[in-house]
Design a protein around this nucleic acid. Structure first.
Length: 935
DNA sequence: TGATCTACCTAC
DNA sequence: TAAGGTAGGTAGATCA
């Protein structure tokens, strides 16, 4: 009877005498975990050689006993348009590890033969499990239906209680030796089991714990679904009485660790979650176990579905953990990628994203709490339990994995690879599949030398065009943008590695991008990348259609994740082509894409400003001047000019003698989208996105819009801020809330006076700051910056470095790279950087804040950039003296086109809506999920 | 003191 | 076996 399961992980095993056997690990639709053995898949790679290929083949076969067979096959080479395939060798080895082993040796054959010409190895560095998945059209989180016979699952051994003899167990529920395997199309997700855990260590004097001396004293678990009725469990490294039913006291640390591994194996989770456990808990446990074993303790750290032990490897700054057959999901990096927050400590993240409090025990107090047997001890236990609960909730409630599961299904990469890595593995996976189908081989990954050579060249890659903004406050601005600009450019112009003209010349015309280079048109050869993109785009369209039909909420979520994954993949190909470590790197290709993009946006501006110029509104029609013919007094003429644009967007300023309603502007928007789209090659499309009733353009990449979007039967409005200090995390919260208020007053109320008044009040509050009382205000003065490298590799002093240094000398704690460091600027003499201080330290020691810095450097400059537009000057400010008038605003009554009284009716209408629909400024509202790159 | 460089973060 | 891309604004340190 065939059995269906979803592929979670894959690897291979060497079976004595019969070569490699692929193992697929997964969870069945029936809820059982599976290990599926697939025999008869052989490792291979390709060699392009010169001379008599038969002779080369024979020599290779005779020289290397690892080589099973050498065949001559016809393939296209990776890059460049080619009229015909070329004969190359396909070399099959006995074991996967033979491939890298003989890869370099094999080039020596060339010297033996004294052959002239180019030899090149292809596809020798593809992991065997990936090779299998690609060749069999399988992939991560894909469903398979397998036929075969039941066999015994992998086993593991572990110590029993109190030093009893070794006990043997199966590492997963079932195993099957496959005789037939086929892909099943389904977006369903198997009933996955989630386990989250967190450890507590007992450090020396509250400093950093070290696994060779500091014991692990508690481990907490969280389970979904429950484990023997428990949602959580807490293991203690000491006996204890009077604890609740989720607490398991152990004799000592060794017994606790054995229980830990036992519970993991028994529960048999698919997903092992934690918060920073990839970098901390897992390495710590691994090292601690080693330390204890070295002392003679008996611990068997089994965690894998094949009976393998826990382990980790460090690559430079990155730690990789592998739990065979399972997926390690660290919520920290996923949250960093998905949400823009000022800090990513579990405390801040839980509060911001789950609105849940982390319980806390200060490192200095841990020892006391641990040795207590009353309330303090219980508090410590609860603190530990809460941490694993939070890790689990972050993963499940924020649905952090949905996107990654969809990406695995769509790209074919294994889930772990996607969760750990970037876009490279997904793009390469798709490329390998499609190149294989079209008989084209792919290059190996570039070495360090080639990569850095490419990296030096990559300054030759030009990016998008940013139009100079028409600075100031504008009314009635249309926002249009190109849907998936770069992918559609590649499709429209057949831009691909396989169409670039660099060896064979096609007969007819070629496509010539503005950046130079030549590409063959699709009639001559349809590029592989454009065809992949087309497929992804079609799939996305279908998915969106299915989403509209879907009634089930869960189905809708899965489909939404799928269309999002498709969008991410669509947008990954351009970046990959200019990425120095890509297998397929082509500056010609990348430059062709961006150059079409630049000329496109410039063309669009030209068409709107000059070719179209004006639109006539007549009834519900938006007409070109030539369509309108004779104009009547009923007609409304809208004059168009592009006020700004960045890469794939244009902001069109609409002016007319009288008022224009949102509906009327929308008519213009739709018409523009129609006209411009019609002038573009398929599938490029300029989309009408939204209308800004008012737009404040400050500089390139810095603006605020009062946006109106159609919603149900009315309009939904909100302020959207880009690039300004309100959305920047290296400014303090006081700056963002003040600026947000100013923007509201200016954009919605059109009331500059009130904005000035507001700023005056804020400045006054700061000036009269009383550090003892205004803890809340101080909270709003905290700045944060990312520690981006090792402290000694900075050339200039930096404020957050000062804080890191202070922290290190005071507590011995060294934040890791990537951590956001909070600080405030304290009063005193000397450089700004030297006056940065840890906010906690400031609070505890009542250090005074540099009030002047906050007023002059944090509040006023950003405010001035906005209010300056209305002629508000703050030149005559003298903050150092404590005189009467703190400062004088010179308000040149702005000719605020915004305050025209005659608009009373529409104005009132708008204000009504504002009250209904509360403003969603990023800092005030719920934290928004970070959006994607999307050109 | 003004010009240049370094660092960070953001828009797309 | 680490990592998609470029364009751009702003602040502060450092250089000349």
């Amino acid at each position: 009877m065939p059995m269906d399961f979803q592929i979670l992980d894959a690897d291979y095993q060497i079976v004595n005498g019969s070569g490699p056997v692929i193992r697929l690990f997964g969870r069945g639709a029936d809820g059982k975990s599976v290990c599926c053995f697939v025999p008869d898949f052989e490792p291979y790679f390709y060699l392009k050689a010169s001379g008599d290929l038969h002779a080369v083949a024979r020599l290779i076969k005779d020289t290397f006993e690892q080589v099973q067979k050498v065949e001559i096959v016809k393939k296209f080479e990776p890059v460049g348009y080619q009229k015909t395939k070329k004969e190359i060798l396909r070399i099959t080895t006995r074991l996967p590890r033979d491939v890298p082993e003989i890869r370099d040796e094999i080039l020596k054959i060339r010297d033996v033969l004294g052959a002239e010409g180019d030899w090149q190895i292809y596809e020798s560095d593809i992991l065997f499990r990936n090779r299998f998945l690609i060749d069999r059209d399988l992939g991560g989180m894909v469903w398979v239906s397998v036929e075969g016979k039941s066999v015994e699952p992998p086993r593991y051994f572990r110590t029993g209680p109190a030093g009893s003899s070794l006990r043997e167990n199966f590492a997963c529920d079932s195993a099957i030796l496959a005789s037939g395997l086929k892909r099943v199309e389904s977006l369903a997700i198997a009933p996955l089991k989630y386990l989250a855990f967190d450890i507590e260590c007992l450090p020396h004097d509250g400093g950093m714990p070290s696994p060779d001396v500091s014991p692990i004293i508690m481990i907490s678990f969280s389970f979904e679904p429950a484990y023997n009725g428990h949602k959580t469990l807490i293991l203690l490294a000491k006996p204890a009485a009077g604890m609740d039913g989720d607490v398991i006291p152990c004799r000592d640390e060794t017994e606790m660790l054995n229980r830990f591994f036992e519970i993991i194996c028994e529960y048999d989770p698919d997903i092992v979650a934690g918060y920073n456990h990839q970098d901390f808990d897992i390495p710590y446990i691994t090292d601690r176990v080693k330390t204890l074993i070295a002392k003679g303790e008996v611990i068997n750290p089994v965690v894998g579905r094949d009976g393998s032990q826990m382990g980790y490897r460090r690559f430079g700054l990155i730690t990789r953990t592998e739990l065979k057959g399972r997926v390690v999901v660290d919520a920290l990096p996923l949250i960093r990628r998905a949400f823009s927050l000022k800090q990513y400590t579990l405390r801040v993240v839980s509060k911001e994203l789950l609105n849940r409090e982390k319980l806390d025990v200060a490192p200095m107090e841990m020892e006391e709490y641990w040795n207590d047997s009353g309330d303090k001890f219980k508090k410590f236990v609860d603190y530990s339990r809460r941490d694993s609960e939070l890790a689990m909730e972050l993963v499940l409630e924020l649905r952090l994995l949905d996107k990654y599961i969809a990406l695995a299904q769509v790209s074919g990469s294994l889930l772990q690879e996607i969760v750990d890595g970037g876009q490279t593995s997904m793009v390469e996976n798709l490329l390998l599949r499609e190149f294989r189908r079209k008989d084209r081989v792919i290059l190996p990954k570039p070495g360090d030398e080639l990569s850095s050579e490419r990296y030096d060249m990559s300054s030759d890659l030009k990016g998008g065009e940013v139009l100079e903004p028409k600075k100031g406050l504008l009314e009635n601005v249309l926002i249009l943008d190109y849907k998936s600009l770069y992918p559609t450019i590649m499709m429209a112009h057949n831009l691909c590695y396989t169409t670039v003209v660099n060896r064979d010349r096609p007969d007819g015309e070629t496509i010539k991008p503005p950046s130079g280079g030549e590409f063959v048109p699709p009639e001559v050869f349809r590029g592989i990348v454009p065809s992949i993109l087309e497929d992804l785009l079609n799939q996305r369209g279908d998915t969106k259609k299915r989403m509209k039909r879907a009634s089930d909420e869960n189905e809708c979520r899965v489909l939404d994740a799928t269309q999002l994954a498709l969008k991410i993949l669509l947008n990954s190909f351009y970046g990959y082509s200019g990425y120095a470590r890509a297998r397929l790197y082509s500056l010609t290709l990348a430059n062709a894409v961006t150059s079409f993009g630049r000329s496109n946006i410039l063309n669009t501006r030209e068409i709107i400003n000059n070719t179209i110029g004006k639109i006539v509104l007549r009834g519900s029609a938006a007409l070109l001047l030539e369509e309108a013919g004779e104009l009547s007094s009923q007609d409304k003429i809208v004059e168009l000019s592009v006020a700004y644009g960045d890469t794939d967007s244009v902001f069109v300023h609409c002016r007319s003698g009288g008022d224009i309603s949102l509906e009327e502007i929308s008519l213009v928007g739709n018409r523009l989208s129609e006209i411009v789209s019609a002038s573009l090659p398929d599938p490029m499309e300029l989309e009408f996105e939204s209308v800004a009733k008012r737009a404040l353009l400050i500089a390139k990449k810095r603006y605020a819009l009062w946006l109106f979007e159609p919603k149900n039967s009315g309009w939904e409005n909100k302020i959207k801020v880009k690039g300004m200090e309100t959305v920047r995390r290296d400014w303090c919260e006081l700056t963002s809330i003040t600026l947000n208020r100013v923007l509201e007053l200016v954009l919605i109320e059109g009331d500059v006076d009130q904005a000035v008044e507001h700023v005056r009040k804020v400045v006054n509050d700061v000036r009269n700051l009383d550090p003892g009382r205004d803890a809340e205000l101080i909270e709003k003065l905290v700045l944060t910056r990312t520690l981006t490298r090792k402290p000694d590799s900075y050339k200039n002093k930096q404020p957050h470095l000062t804080v890191v240094e202070n922290l290190r000398t005071r507590t011995g704690i060294m934040p890791s790279i990537g951590t956001r460091i909070p600080f405030v600027i304290i009063a005193g003499k000397g450089l700004f950087v030297e006056r940065a201080e840890d906010p906690d330290y400031v609070r505890e020691h009542n250090v005074s804040i540099d009030v002047d810095y906050y007023i002059k450097k944090q509040i006023l400059p950003p405010v001035e950039r906005i209010l300056g537009v209305f002629g508000v000057k703050m030149s005559s400010l003298d903050f150092d003296s404590k005189q009467k008038g703190l400062f004088d605003f010179e308000v040149n009554k702005p000719e605020v086109k915004t305050q025209e009284k005659e608009k009373a009716s529409s104005q009132k209408e708008l204000e009504g809506m504002v009250q209904e629909e509360k403003l969603q400024c990023p800092e005030n509202g719920r934290v928004e999920q970070r959006s994607l790159f999307d050109f």
